[in-house]
């Protein structure tokens, strides 16, 4: 039965189990830091309200005038929520590089075993690619779930008089990070395409380095710069021609998507060539 499972599924599952410890740590860190934020920030706020009320024996209205209300958005903008996101993003970015290099520089050279598996070597590539995305989506889901848990906590701690009427979903829409990370808008797919393209180019760069050593780094940087130039070029078209009506916004989106897909596909072909013919253990 096990044999019939596709090699891609098996390898992805294997990569996932290797990621799990790191991923659980990031998830735990996120939830823990968030919880602290959900409790500490409203408590500090209420503390301030109470102190102000007692010290200047002010009325509710006076307090509101000078201290304002606390919204859930304020809480989500605190470091307790933003910092774990930054750590998560940089953690997975780091892992995207580590996922390859550990096969060569780990205590044992597992690259031998992986490259000698009787499966297409692109299967290795895709398993690593998929697992990074599983990591990304897991962290995003964790963050979303955490917000749903956090909202009632914050609203329970803050006296309703001082709690802004701003809802959970509205807070998300206002948040500059959530707006990018969460599937809130239909153009979320654009962000996914950007993410996938960046990851594919990065993997290609790593394979270039693994194939041609220091010379590969130069190739890689060159490749990345060309890719970046191709994708960014249309964004400056209107400036170059000094004509703001040259292309419409919707057309620009289509052009960008096409260009990113071209960069992705060329990265896939380059990677396939390198991993099949040029890589060295």
């Amino acid at each position: 039965m096990k044999k019939s499972l596709s090699p891609l599924l098996k390898l992805t599952n294997f990569e996932l189990s290797r990621l799990s410890k790191f991923l659980f740590t990031l998830m735990g860190l996120t939830v823990l830091a968030n919880l602290v934020g959900y409790i500490y920030i409203p408590m500090k706020f209420m503390d301030k309200i109470n102190k102000f009320t007692i010290e200047s024996s002010a009325t509710t209205e006076e307090v509101l005038n000078s201290l304002g209300t606390l919204s859930f958005y304020d809480v989500t903008m605190s470091l307790w929520i933003v910092a774990p996101i930054a750590i998560g993003v940089s953690g997975l970015l780091f892992y995207s590089i580590f996922i390859w290099y550990r096969e060569w520089f780990g205590k044992n050279t597992f690259a031998y075993r992986l490259l000698m598996l009787p499966v297409s070597r692109m299967t290795l590539f895709f398993s690593k690619f998929i697992v990074i995305f599983i990591g990304i989506f897991t962290l995003i889901s964790t963050q979303i779930v955490s917000l749903f848990i956090g909202y009632p906590i914050v609203s329970a701690i803050v006296d309703s008089t001082y709690f802004s009427s701003l809802g959970l979903i509205e807070s998300m829409y206002m948040h500059p990070l959530f707006l990018i990370l969460f599937p809130l808008e239909p153009n979320y797919f654009l962000i996914l395409i950007v993410g996938a393209t960046v990851l594919l180019v990065m993997f290609t760069l790593i394979l270039m380095e693994r194939s041609f050593a220091s010379k590969g780094i130069l190739f890689g940087i060159g490749y990345a710069m060309v890719a970046l130039a191709i994708v960014l070029f249309p964004l400056f078209l209107s400036d170059i021609f000094n004509n703001n009506y040259l292309i419409y916004g919707s057309e620009l989106v289509i052009i960008e998507v096409v260009l990113m897909i071209i960069v992705s596909i060329s990265s896939l072909f380059t990677s396939r060539y390198l991993i099949n013919n040029k890589i060295t253990v």
């Binding site: 780990g106 205590k107 044992n108 050279t109 597992f110 031998y112 075993r113 000698m116």
Partner: peptide, 11 residues
């Protein structure tokens, strides 16, 4: 099958 002289399974 290839048996290198370095350990190649995960430690």
């Amino acid at each position: 099958a290839f048996i290198p002289d370095v350990a190649i399974m995960l430690p």
